[in-house]
């Protein structure tokens, strides 16, 4: 207890607190380490695994999930949760597909979809904030509502034939010889970069962390807590809409059952990425690594011909559990420190 002695030892003290401070990177570092290890194991087991394109394909196949995980990171950092993201993805796809089918300009459609997603999220945030209802139940209602609205638009699948969307689906951006990414990857990475910037370089972003660290403290410090809490759900809604557009680029259709359960994947990616579900600790880059880990699990299973696709879900569940237990250990350590 007697930290404050009359003769402080500045050097020693600083080093100790630096060391303890590193603990906050522990879960995220574990994620990156796990990813590298999995990639190395894959390279050892399968010929052709260790190629740049296998890595880039992880990005190409998961653009929408990356964007969803980014939005989810904002929400979980404040200590909330958003269960509606998968349904909002589906709704965005349906709106886009239906409007494109009706002959709308694709850019107007995209703008409208993004606006809808953001508004949807903001409304949920308002209900959570103003009426003090648990985020879990409000976004659950959002899940129902968005999924139901999909069916209102159409019960059947709608194919997208718009030239811009098909162009985006087929376009490949060469990076080097035999290495390429899709435009979606660029968009997803831009979203990650913007999120990183917002979280670390703006007062809004720091307020997000502050709320996760202690909402009442943040309030007493005079921070804009209510506004920030509403906005994170708006951001999550916007990200879901972007995810929906990216998924449309990827699948060129709108289908009411699309992205069922994707909220679970997004939450799993964020948790595996080292963000504490209780809020306050975590990084958006960790979430990106989390998505890549989920992706590499899938790649593994497709390389290993004998394993069936459902192993993906089981492994994701196991990873989720492992990281939750890790978090449990971690937060105990933080309390002791």
């Amino acid at each position: 207890m007697s930290v404050l002695t009359r003769t402080p030892t500045p050097l020693g003290r600083t080093r100790i607190s630096r060391l303890q401070g590193k603990a906050r990177y522990a879960p995220t570092l574990a994620t990156v380490g796990l990813f590298l290890a999995m990639f190395a194991i894959g390279a050892g087991m399968y010929p052709g695994f260790l190629s740049g394109q296998v890595f880039l394909n992880l990005l190409i196949d998961n653009t929408f999930l990356i964007v969803l995980a980014v939005g989810m990171t904002f929400v979980i950092l404040t200590g909330g949760i958003d269960l509606s993201v998968g349904s909002v993805v589906a709704l965005s796809m349906m709106i886009a597909a239906a409007l494109l089918q009706a002959g709308w300009n694709p850019f107007v459609v995209i703008a409208l979809v993004l606006l809808t997603g953001a508004t949807f999220g903001l409304l949920m945030g308002l209900v959570i904030q103003v009426f003090e209802i648990q985020p879990f139940i409000v976004t659950l209602a959002g899940l129902f509502l968005a999924r139901g609205l999909c069916y209102v638009i159409s019960v059947d699948s709608i194919t997208v034939t718009d030239p811009f969307f098909t162009a985006m689906a087929q376009a490949r951006i060469p990076l080097a010889e035999k290495l390429f990414v899709s435009p979606g990857v660029v968009i997803a990475l831009v979203v990650v970069a913007v999120a990183f910037y917002v979280l670390h370089q703006t007062r809004f972003g720091r307020t997000v962390y502050a709320i996760g660290g202690g909402e009442s403290s943040a309030l007493l410090m005079g921070l804009a807590v209510p506004r920030t809490k509403v906005l994170v759900y708006g951001i999550s809604g916007l990200c879901s809409a972007i995810g929906g557009i990216l998924f449309s680029f990827y699948s060129l259709s709108g289908y009411s059952l699309a992205a069922t359960g994707m909220e679970l994947d997004a939450i799993a990616a964020v948790v595996v990425g080292g963000t504490l579900l209780t809020g306050g600790y975590g990084y958006v880059l960790g979430s990106l690594a989390g998505v890549l880990i989920l992706g590499i699990v899938q790649t593994f299973i497709s390389y290993e011909g004998t394993l069936s696709s459902w192993w993906t879900r089981i492994v994701i569940g196991a990873l989720l559990l492992a990281f939750i237990l890790l978090q449990k250990l971690f937060s105990r350590k933080v309390k002791l420190a």
């Binding site: 930290v3 402080p8 030892t9 500045p10 003290r13 600083t14 100790i16 607190s17 630096r18 303890q20 401070g21 603990a23 906050r24 933080v334 309390k335 420190a337």
Partner: peptide
């Protein structure tokens, strides 16, 4: 003597 960059919970 307090390191401004250290995490609050370590104090």
């Amino acid at each position: 003597h307090i390191d401004p960059g250290s995490v609050l919970s370590t104090h």
